[in-house]
Design a protein around this nucleic acid. Sequence first.
DNA 1: TTGACAATCGCCCATTTATGCTATTTTTGT
DNA 2: ACAAAAATAGCATAAATGGGCGATTGTCAA
Lengths: 211, 211
Amino acid sequence: MIHVIITEDNDTIREGLALLINASDGLKCSAAYAQCEDMLADYKNHRVDVFLQDIGLPGMNGIECVQLLRQEMPEALILMLTVYEDEENIFNALKAGASGYLLKKTAPAQLIEAIKDAYEGGSPMSANIARKVVRFFQSGSGAKKPDMHNLSRREVEILSGLAAGNSYKMLADKLFISIHTVRSHIRHIYKKLQVHNQSEAVSRAYKNGII
Amino acid sequence: MIHVIITEDNDTIREGLALLINASDGLKCSAAYAQCEDMLADYKNHRVDVFLQDIGLPGMNGIECVQLLRQEMPEALILMLTVYEDEENIFNALKAGASGYLLKKTAPAQLIEAIKDAYEGGSPMSANIARKVVRFFQSGSGAKKPDMHNLSRREVEILSGLAAGNSYKMLADKLFISIHTVRSHIRHIYKKLQVHNQSEAVSRAYKNGII
DNA sequence: TTGACAATCGCCCATTTATGCTATTTTTGT
DNA sequence: ACAAAAATAGCATAAATGGGCGATTGTCAA
């Protein structure tokens, strides 16, 4: 039986999570708190294997909470469960000692799987979270800024192509589309990134970890 | 329909993977190779969304292969599928450009899920692989890159200006020099970095830590 | 003191890019 | 099933850029 402690300020979500966990084989919610302070003061009175931790909380921030918790329980398994998917929160949470990072939009069944996964030594992460973490390696590491890029796959492809030194024409040939289409994509990229030339777009792409 | 290309030397495993993939809804194995060299020479003749890539191969190593593939297809989605779970292989593969890292002991159903996950922007990793990646953050390692650029101070200034979105004219005004001088600096930058346009220069600057 | 290199300024010209429009067909999301 | 977004394509034009070729100062080290 895996014992879970929840810290989540929204009453509905917190109670929903507790119900879900208690309804699952092998899982039990041993306590649930609306604030980090309450949790830190009381968690020792309960059995616990995995912490489910929100980030946006009244009072102490969820990430600070993870740091404190880690000092007291270095082996604690902590899963962040939050709506934030910006790099800053992700990396800070992981650095603080979280074992996994899940988005609140995660389906119930997957959430249960994630808890079991963490308990068995895994590090469950929502799909695009994992991708961002992996990208951290690929970009040679470095503190990333937040900011969401909503570039489409094709747009990212075009932008990467530009960064690689391709001209519009070269990109058109490589991607088997007309130069007009390349232009069109680039216009959209500029609009989305709020820039007005290639260099700034490429720069922004690096800063935001798009590339 | 997600098209998958497999590179795996063991005939039994390779054919088994192809069968598994073709038997799955929405997945199709468009080609399978026993060696990287064969794959690199032929993959363009097939549609492909995701590469499944072994590491321990006769001839070219799977990780080198990923690097080459990435150069030709920066947006390629590559999943490593291997027996190695040492950190060196994991990190090198991710740095080379792999999007995910799976162990061969992964259950068939999970493998299929992982391919779909990658296609949808995720970075699937076997449980203990993910944990190792997360530990990397917690150990606070932020591998710094050595900067061996021989750009002059002024050239770096110009290059930064370009990355910030300035045109030649704007830079000239900001730096109180003529536009001809700006052009001259940029020509030198291009020569030193071996590039031929702004985007590539900016990209190189980020990669080499100049900016 | 000679040579390498940085920083500055100049001209010419073909190519590329940015930006303003519109518009159709697929895909995706709800 | 419908709406939104992405991907595709086109036209026109002014502005910006890249490359060729050359030149004058300084500075600093061999």
